[in-house]
Design a protein around this nucleic acid. Structure first.
Lengths: 206, 206
DNA sequence: AGCGACATTGCCACTAAGTGGCATTATCTG
DNA sequence: CAGATAATGCCACTTAGTGGCAATGTCGCT
């Protein structure tokens, strides 16, 4: 995860640096001045790059705000793609998320919390973030379904993954609501507790 | 539901007519030429309305494409808001969806299918549509939580609603995949079957 | 029918997101 | 040091979306 060290060609180091500067400054400006009130020109001025360069690093204004989300999901898919899982699927998915969380960059917590708070406030970010989740479910279904050992029904599999994501979203919402206190460990704990709540949630009466 | 008849002032009738024409033409153009390839100017030219008028009727290009989604969810929230539910919550939510589906406009099936197919193909619509689902979950949690009879835990309630929406999304995806054959009755049946699959999905092994 | 109140529309100018092309500059390779 | 290559900057362009204001059409009243 943390291989942003000096083992890269100078050119790539520079590129990575502006990439990080864009994400960092974007997060700061968006939280300070508000998402809509901050134009991409503002951001590019602050980082001293051309707007064209911004779009070579991020596909949209939403993308740069939700870089932390993107980081998590791509790391998660990498992890699930390499390791093979056994036992109850939904539990395996949760454990994989657990280990993925623990491998994230040290300051990922902060960035992720900021991204979540932004996405609570800005509908466009909300939608974009949900889009990430959806893409991930689709990829997950493909990965798990592609394994030889699993001859599970496609619809059932999709439902499992959807419920997994539903629990994740509920947990991370709680975590954000309480200010992200306790960092990723607290988040992982919330995820576990939320998963444990599923049977009760299904049995709940109006 | 179908009170678009001549019991309205002439002015409102006219406005409603352009509203419908916009939605109808949009759906046609988007499917024929593609969503990105159709500009709002194209649409406004076809309906013979100024772009300003379009934005007085719909908040965005995505909105007009997903009008059928919006119709369903607002009808659903209306329904849940008036009726009071009892018994297992998730089952009550499903039944409410069932009755809401049956009260939709006769040609809602067609519009909804078109909207779903578009939203499979266009990421922006995908995200926007997920945004609708999310807004609905939030509103649902508020409505159900606001009732006096229910002293259910907030997190558990949110989880229930999230799972409900997850099942709905899975079902409507299946329905779209098989070309929407059987209309809303088939959709309702798929929803019921998907809900019945939840325990199996939770128990599934990798 | 006619008149004033009010809502709806059309038009125009504007901001901001996002894209394509091409010259310029910086880095890598030998 | 020289040539290939990749990143950047700059400029012009399209499109989504907004605000203002004048013009038009509709309603209600006499």
């Amino acid at each position: 995860m943390s291989d942003d060290l000096r083992d890269l060609p100078l050119r790539e180091r520079k590129k990575l640096r502006t990439r990080l500067a864009l994400a960092e400054t974007a997060l700061r400006l968006f939280t300070e001045r508000g998402y809509d009130a901050t134009t991409l020109d503002d951001l590019c001025d602050a980082v001293e790059v051309s707007k064209r360069t911004f779009f070579r690093n991020y596909r949209s204004k939403e993308d740069v705000a939700l870089a932390a989300d993107s980081d998590l999901w791509s790391a998660y898919l990498d992890h699930v793609g390499t390791r093979k899982m056994n036992g109850p699927l939904i539990e395996a998915l949760r454990v994989a998320l657990d280990t993925t969380l623990s491998t994230m960059d040290p300051d990922w917590d902060r960035r992720f919390l900021a991204a979540r708070e932004l996405s609570e406030a800005v509908p466009a970010l909300q939608a974009h973030s949900l889009g990430y989740c959806h893409d991930t479910t689709r990829a997950l279904v493909e990965v798990v379904s592609g394994r030889s050992e699993s001859d599970i029904d496609e619809v059932r599999l999709r439902l499992t993954v959807e419920i997994f994501v539903a629990a994740w979203r509920t947990a991370s919402l709680c975590w954000t609501a309480q200010g992200g206190h306790g960092g990723r460990e607290a988040l992982a704990k919330l995820v576990e507790e939320t998963f444990a709540e599923i049977p009760a949630a299904l049995a709940a009466s109006a």
